[in-house]
Structure formats: structure tokens, C-alpha cells
Design a binder for these strands. Structure first.
Lengths: 133, 133
DNA sequence: CGTTTGCATTACGTGAACGTCATCTACGTG
DNA sequence: CACGTAGATGACGTTCACGTAATGCAAACG
């Protein structure tokens, strides 16, 4: 089963996506399953890429943006031409992501603050209730 | 100018959105500008909400999800009924966001690792070149 | 051997999030 | 008062990311 190759159905169950989605990603050149006759067979590489795709989506990247990110992760598959340029892009992406994390941290702190405030309000409501008894 | 009320155009320039977007958000009940005759006037509250909307979008939330989040931030505007339930939701959201940050941290580390690997490859390429001279 | 099962392709449909265009109105200005 | 400017209101168009048939093919099964 885990002979490094998975059918489309196995992929769907493993990663909780539909066949349509996998075919769509292939059409958009995000995945490159090999063919056994007609059937698609997904490799270890495809699975790694799919994980990154799903992760990217959770952070609001478009599929096109994700495709470019994926290329960064797989430079090794090709020649090293334009390595310098690739590095620039990768560093920019890294900066993006760190900025994003900063923003997320801020959002988390905001929400925590909000919760603390809410607790205060509830506490004062209890007091009022007590006083009214 | 900063009399707590802004026209649609001022909003657009301040937050870099189109009028269409602001009207759309109003239609979706994400914003509640007041009316002066026909014209919309956006309050401090609308601006706070818009900031949260834009932030939410950067993290891949749908407008509907954002609308629910916004309600969490403005419980104070209404009665405190169902406060407990609201708190549950808020805590879940907080957990979501913290998990998300964890994932983002992982992605950042992955990319950093990738960069280190790339540097190694480049270094070895230089050596080969030297050896070839 | 017919049929079900699994996957393929082709093509049209859909919901979200706006863009775009036409038309209308109210207001200030020369 | 003519006119430009800002904003409002439909209504239709568009892009993205798939969903949903309809149809076909090939191996597996009873």
C-alpha cells in the first residue's frame, strides 16, 4: 500500500480532498502524478506538495501563489540556474511569513485582551446581582 | 476631518479599498455606516471593524467567518445575554489562532531549513568550479 | 459474459468577493 | 442656472476554486 505510490482514492482519504480537487491541482500544475495506463499514481513528492498546498490555503494564499512557493521547495529537482534570484524570492517570502506571524500574534493578544475584559464585565455583573439580592 | 466621521472616499484612501467594497461589506452586515441624507458616514466603530475585516482576509477567513468574529469583538454594544456561549466561541477561536501560529512557525522553520540547504549546495558548486580551474 | 467498481475526460454549474457600467440625485461653484 | 463632482442604486460581468453531471473505458467479480 505504501509502495510510495497512491491511487487517487487513497489520496482523497488520506488528505480529505475530492478527486476533482486533485485533478484540478494537476491541471494547474501543482501536482504531477505519473500514469499507469490511464490511472494517476501519486508519488511521495506529490504528497509533500499537497501538504504544502493545503497549508498554504489555510493561510489564504491563492493557488497561483502556492505554485510559486512550491517551486521554491523543489529547486533541487532541476538545474541550479538563477539560484540567486530564487534565493531572493525565498528570502522575501520568509520575511512575509514572519511579518504575518507578527500580525497573528497581535491578533491573538487582542483577542486575549478582549476575553479579559469580558471576564471583568461578567464579574461586575455578578456583583450587581449579589447587591440586588 | 477627523470628526469621528469619514466619507466613503476618505475611507477608501485610508484603507486602500474601493467604494464598491465598502458598500458590499455594508450589504453583508459587516459595517453599519450612518446616513446623512443619502450619504454614508463611517464611524470609529466602522473603522475598527474594517481593520479587523482586512486582517481576517489576510489570514484566509471568509467574510462570513469574519462577521462572526466581529460579533465577538462587539458584544459590549449589546446586552450580555448568552455571554457564556460567546466566551466558548471566543476561546475556540483563540485556540484556532494559536494553532495557526504554530503551523506558521513550522512553515517558517521549513523555509529557513531550505535556505540553509540551498546555501550548502551553492557552496559546493563554488568548490567544484574552483577545482575545475 | 454481463455488470459493477474505479477512474478518466469533457463540459457546464456554482458561491464568494468583488469589478464595471448605466443611471440618478444632491450639492457647491462660476 | 448650467455644470462638474461625489455619492447612491441597481444590474450584469468576472475570477477563483472547485462541484456536479454525463459519458466512456478497463479491470474485477459473480
Amino acid at each position: 500500500m505504501t509502495e510510495d505510490l497512491m491511487t487517487i482514492r487513497e489520496m482523497c482519504e488520506t488528505y480529505d480532498v475530492t478527486p476533482r480537487t486533485l485533478r484540478f491541482y494537476e491541471a494547474k500544475e501543482l501536482l504531477f502524478p505519473i500514469r499507469e495506463g490511464q490511472k494517476r499514481l501519486f508519488t511521495k513528492r506529490d504528497r509533500a506538495r499537497l501538504k504544502l498546498i493545503l497549508r498554504g490555503k489555510r493561510f489564504g494564499f491563492s493557488l497561483e501563489e502556492i505554485r510559486q512557493l512550491l517551486d521554491l521547495y523543489h529547486v533541487g529537482d532541476q538545474q541550479m540556474t538563477q539560484m540567486t534570484r530564487t534565493f531572493e524570492i525565498a528570502r522575501e517570502r520568509l520575511a512575509d511569513m514572519e511579518a504575518r506571524r507578527e500580525e497573528l500574534t497581535q491578533a491573538i493578544d487582542d483577542l486575549k485582551e478582549q476575553l479579559r475584559w469580558g471576564e471583568k464585565v461578567i464579574a461586575s455583573m455578578k456583583n450587581e446581582k449579589k447587591a440586588a439580592e
